[in-house]
Design a protein around this nucleic acid. Structure first.
Lengths: 243, 243
DNA sequence: AGATTTTATTTGTCTGACATTTAAAAGTCT
DNA sequence: AGACTTTTAAATGTCAGACAAATAAAATCT
C-alpha cells in the first residue's frame, strides 16, 4: 500500500484505488484488519474525512466491512455470492434502463445464457429445485395475478432452472441477466391466452428436467424465446398505432 | 427522495440507498443534476460530510459523477458498457479468488457461457473480429512468449469470439467470466506441446467461424474445455507429488 | 462589441470536536 | 479464588465551521 503521487486531485479516489489494489493483489487477505482511520490518514498524509470517503467507496463495493468499538475497524470482506449477485443485478438493471438496450437484444442475451445452463441443469437438478419450479408454475396459473407478480414468479422459475446447473459461478452470472430483464418484461401485458402458452412451455421445461432430457429443455427454451419476442413485437405494434 | 426513518444508524448508507432508489426507479434521470451537497444535507438533516460519504458510495458504483465549479455538482451518470465491464471484472475476480472456487467450476461456467455465443457468433462475426482472432493465434504461436502473455492473448481471442455474437449485453456479461479466469489460468504452465494443441483448437474455431459453422465452433469449444480441464488436473497432480 | 476582471457557487479538503459502540482491563463482592 | 460489575480506552460515526480550488456567469473596462 504505497504513497500517492503528488497529484493532489481526487485524493479519496486514489486512496481507495491503492487499498483496492492491495486487496486484489492479495497483499491484504480476507478478514485482515486495515489500519485505523487515523493511522491511514497519517500514512497517506491526508485528513480523516478523506480516508473515510475512500473507505466508503470500498464499502459500496462490499470490499470491506466496518465494525465499531474497541476492536473495531475496517476489515477485508469475503465477497459472498449474495453480495456479488445484488451488485450484478443493480449494474445490469441500470445498464439496460440507461442505454436503450432493445428488448430483442436483452431477450436474446438472456435466453442464450439460460440455454447454456440447460444441459447441466438436466444432469444435476435436485428434487428440491424441480419442486420450486412446479410451485412457481402453479402460482403463475392462478387467476387474478397481476402482471408484476406473474413476472416475479417467472424470474423465480428461471432462477431455479439456472441454479439447477449446480454451478455457483453460472448462477451468479445469470442472476443479473435474468433479473435485469424483469422491468422490461413488466412492460408486457400478459393476456390470459399468453400466460397459458407460457405456462405450457414452463411445464414442458419442468417435465424435460424431470426426465433429465437436456436437448428437450434447450428446444423448449428456444420456443419460449421466440414466443416472448413475438409478444414484445405485438406490444410494440400496439403502441405504434393505438386504438 | 424521501426522509430516512429515525434510525440514526449508518446514515450515509441510508442516504446512498435513497438516492440509488431514486435513480433506479427513474425519479432521477440520466444527466440530471442532484441538489448541491449543502442542500442535500439540509433535506436529510445531516451534515455535509455525511452526505459526501453517501455520494462517494454512489460514485464508486459509477452511478453519479461529480464536477467542480459554479455549475458543478453531482450528476446522474449514464452507466456505460465499459464501466459495467470493469466493475464486473473486479467483482468476478474477487469472487473467484476469495471463495476457493475450484478451477473446474470456473472453467465449466466460462465455457458454458462461451458456447452460448457460438451459434450467434458464427452467424454474425465480422471480418474484423475474425482478423483479431487470427492475429492472436499468430501471437500465441510465437516462441519465447511468457505464460502470462500467452494467457492474455487467450483472453483477447475469446473476447473477440464473444464480441462476434454482436450482442453487447452478452459481451458485458461474459467479459467478467472470461477475464476473471485469467489469474487461475496463469497458474498453469503451458508446455510447448500444450500450447500447440490449444493453437490447433483455436485455429479450428477460427476456421469454423469463417465458414459460419456454429455447431463446429460449439464442438471445438467442448474439446477445448476438456483439454483445459485435463491440463489443470495434470498441474494439480504434479503439485500433489512433486519430483 | 469584445476582451478582461470580478464574483458567486460548488466541490474537495482540513481541523477539531463530540457521540456511540465495543471489548478488554480494573475493580468489587461473595 | 471466582464471578460479576464498573471503568476505561480505542475505534468508528457524526457534526460544525473553515478555507482552497475550480468553474462559469456577471460585471467591468477598453
Amino acid at each position: 500500500m504505497k504513497i500517492d503521487p503528488q497529484n493532489r486531485a481526487d485524493l479519496s479516489a486514489q486512496i481507495a484505488q491503492a487499498i483496492r489494489d492491495a486487496i486484489v493483489s492479495g497483499d491484504l487477505i480476507v478478514d485482515e484488519r486495515l489500519p485505523s482511520e487515523a493511522e491511514l490518514a497519517d500514512q497517506f498524509e491526508v485528513s480523516r474525512p478523506t480516508v473515510r470517503e475512500a473507505l466508503k467507496r470500498l464499502a459500496a463495493q462490499s470490499l470491506i466491512r466496518t465494525q465499531r468499538g474497541a476492536t473495531g475497524g475496517a476489515f477485508v470482506n469475503r465477497l459472498s455470492f449474495e453480495d456479488a449477485y445484488s451488485q450484478q443485478i443493480t449494474t445490469s438493471t441500470l445498464l439496460l434502463s440507461m442505454n436503450a438496450v432493445s428488448f430483442d437484444t436483452a431477450c436474446e442475451a438472456r435466453f442464450a445464457l439460460e440455454r447454456a445452463c440447460a444441459a447441466l441443469a438436466a444432469q444435476r437438478r435436485t428434487a428440491d429445485q424441480l419442486a420450486t419450479m412446479r410451485a412457481e408454475i402453479h402460482r403463475q396459473a392462478q387467476p387474478g395475478l397481476t402482471d408484476e407478480a406473474f413476472c416475479a414468479s417467472d424470474v423465480n422459475f428461471h432462477r431455479a432452472l439456472v441454479d439447477g446447473a449446480g454451478n455457483p459461478v453460472l448462477s451468479y452470472q445469470l442472476a443479473g441477466a435474468v433479473e435485469a430483464m424483469q422491468p422490461l418484461m413488466n412492460m408486457i401485458t400478459f393476456t390470459a391466452r399468453s400466460r397459458e402458452e407460457i405456462i405450457t412451455l414452463h411445464n414442458r421445461i419442468a417435465d424435460a428436467l424431470e426426465k433429465r432430457d437436456g436437448s428437450e429443455v434447450d428446444a423448449t427454451l428456444v420456443e419460449l424465446e421466440n414466443y416472448t419476442r413475438k409478444l414484445a413485437r405485438d406490444v410494440a405494434q400496439k403502441w405504434r398505432k393505438p386504438a
